[in-house]
């Protein structure tokens, strides 16, 4: 199977680097699937779950917003954070998503920064979704 190189870089260091067969990432206007030989594209990303396939195995990762730089043989994702499904505690992710949801309710009533809280809620929901995809131990 044909592959391309995926490189996920965060300010805390590289999160993943290696050949993958398929990649689905949360672009600003919906999910974006990438196969080898994709045309050059620069896309902004929103917080959300992404997954890629290596040797027919699907790996999930929660990313916050950033940019995808896509080329025919290589894809670089520049994201603020990236967490693999195994590294996220499902119960804690759920609690935090709940907390953010409540904060958002409060912000809508008041005049706090709704967009900011909305973004962090999206991020927590992404983490929760990815945590659920983790293989059961």
């Amino acid at each position: 199977m044909k592959t391309f190189l995926l490189d996920i870089v965060t300010p805390d260091g590289p999160a993943f680097q290696g050949p993958v067969e398929r990649l689905v990432l949360p672009a600003a206007e919906g999910l974006l699937g990438v196969l080898p030989g994709h045309e050059p594209l620069v896309a902004s990303m929103r917080p959300g779950p992404l997954h890629y396939e290596v040797d027919g195995k699907v790996e999930w990762m929660a990313v916050s917003g950033g940019f995808a730089q896509i080329g025919p043989s290589k894809v670089v994702l520049l994201v603020e954070t990236a967490e693999a499904s195994g590294a996220i505690d499902q119960a804690r992710a759920r609690a935090r998503a709940e907390q953010k949801r409540n904060a958002l309710e409060g912000a809508r009533r008041g005049r706090a920064d709704v967009a900011l809280i909305e973004a962090s809620l999206m991020k927590e929901l992404a983490r929760l979704k990815v945590a659920e995809k983790a293989p059961r131990p």
Partner: peptide, 12 residues
């Protein structure tokens, strides 16, 4: 960064 063979398109 990925070698640019052609000018990339941008999304959105």
């Amino acid at each position: 960064p990925p070698a640019a063979t052609a000018p990339p398109s941008y999304e959105p």
